[in-house]
């Protein structure tokens, strides 16, 4: 096995490892959705505002997952080490 193949294999594994960041985003979004459902249960008349706030919070919680995705995409498609 030459050096290039080793770097490519390590990059692929690294891209997979980077996507572990998705766990945090998933937990955060699930938490936001759960709290949103709870709030709609308590105050059905405020559903519009609750859904808007929930989507905003979920998207902000997603940010760390997106950072992981950016790293994985860089490793797969624009690898600086090859």
């Amino acid at each position: 096995m030459n050096g290039d193949a080793l770097i490519q294999a390590a990059s692929a594994i690294g891209a997979g490892l980077a996507m572990i960041a998705g766990i945090g985003a998933g937990i955060g979004q699930g938490f936001a959705a759960g709290k949103g459902a709870e709030a709609v249960g308590k105050q059905p008349e405020a559903q519009g505002v609750i859904v808007r706030t929930m989507l905003l919070g979920a998207a902000v919680a997603e940010t760390t997952g997106i950072y992981g995705l950016v790293i994985a995409l860089i490793l797969l498609f624009a690898n600086p080490f090859v």
């Binding site: 998207a59 997603e62 940010t63 997106i66 950072y67 995705l69 950016v70 995409l73 498609f77």
Partner: peptide, 17 residues
């Protein structure tokens, strides 16, 4: 930074790749 990376990552990851 987070504003830019959030939009970029979502559109590149979801929409394009």
């Amino acid at each position: 930074m987070s504003l830019a990376f959030r939009l970029f990552g979502n559109m590149l990851g979801g929409g394009v790749v």
